[in-house]
Amino acid sequence: MVTENFLNLPQTTTAEAAVEPARDATPESVIDVRELQAYYGENRALKDISLSLYSRRVSAIIGPSGCGKSTLVRCLNRMHEMSSGGHVKGEVLYQGENIYGAGVDPVELRSRIGMVFQKPNPFPKSIFENVAFGLKVNGISGNTSERVERSLRRAALWDEVKDRLKQSALQLSGGQQQRLCIARALAVEPEVILMDEPCSALDPMATLAVEELIRELSQEVTIIIVTHNMQQAARVSHHTAFLMMDQDKAGYLVEYGPTSEVFTNPKSEHTEAYITGRFS
């Protein structure tokens, strides 16, 4: 639905311009959501969601609380089915393959599509063990410490923790914990990282650090971020999807397009009302 006008995408926000090097002019889609319906038991939480998420771009999902933003990202790595009664209809194509297809192992899928959660959730183990955990469970042996260091560097945490890798991760500050969780996700070299309101439990400074990190990472991985903070969406994302709750309490996609367009020239009056703060 948005592929047409995607080519002449004007990058208006300054932050994006700063990190926008010359890159492939034509973004390819990595995840195609087709007619997705998500349920909790009998209750439908999402209806008829269709959108394509682009490789090595940041896509933001915004919308009022309860509209199913989190449910949507949790459908993308099949975490939704871990919630009680959680199941879906429709398709999610990852690199052309339906992740809800018969032969797909959700465990394997999740090692390729990483996730970062609302509240930092480091394991009560050392910093090193936290990052190495994904390698361990995926049976990846060899040059573990190298991989751990690289992941921590990519998560811009290395300099702060390199002298205390053996210390408990719980001793880190909230912002550091969240970057550690990002490093943990990065260690298994996922192609996509889902972020479910990663900054909602962080203070402004820590939020800035994570946003900076998201922009840097978007040069090499695809990032899909749920946020209730519209400024954040505007600051970090290339594309924005706006979700709302319908009368039947199911979330639906109102609008999806380049962030600049959604924010400066929304097609839907709902979107406009939301981004101008008339409801939340």
Binding site: M82, L109, S111, G114, M115, V116, F117, N121, G134
Partner: peptide, 21 residues
């Protein structure tokens, strides 16, 4: 539950979540 989710999200199976987390 967030610890279990964190482990699932990096590709652990149920056995690993139970025994290693």
């Amino acid at each position: 539950a967030s610890l279990r989710e964190g482990a699932y999200a990096v590709g652990s199976d149920r056995f690993q979540v139970s025994v290693k987390v």
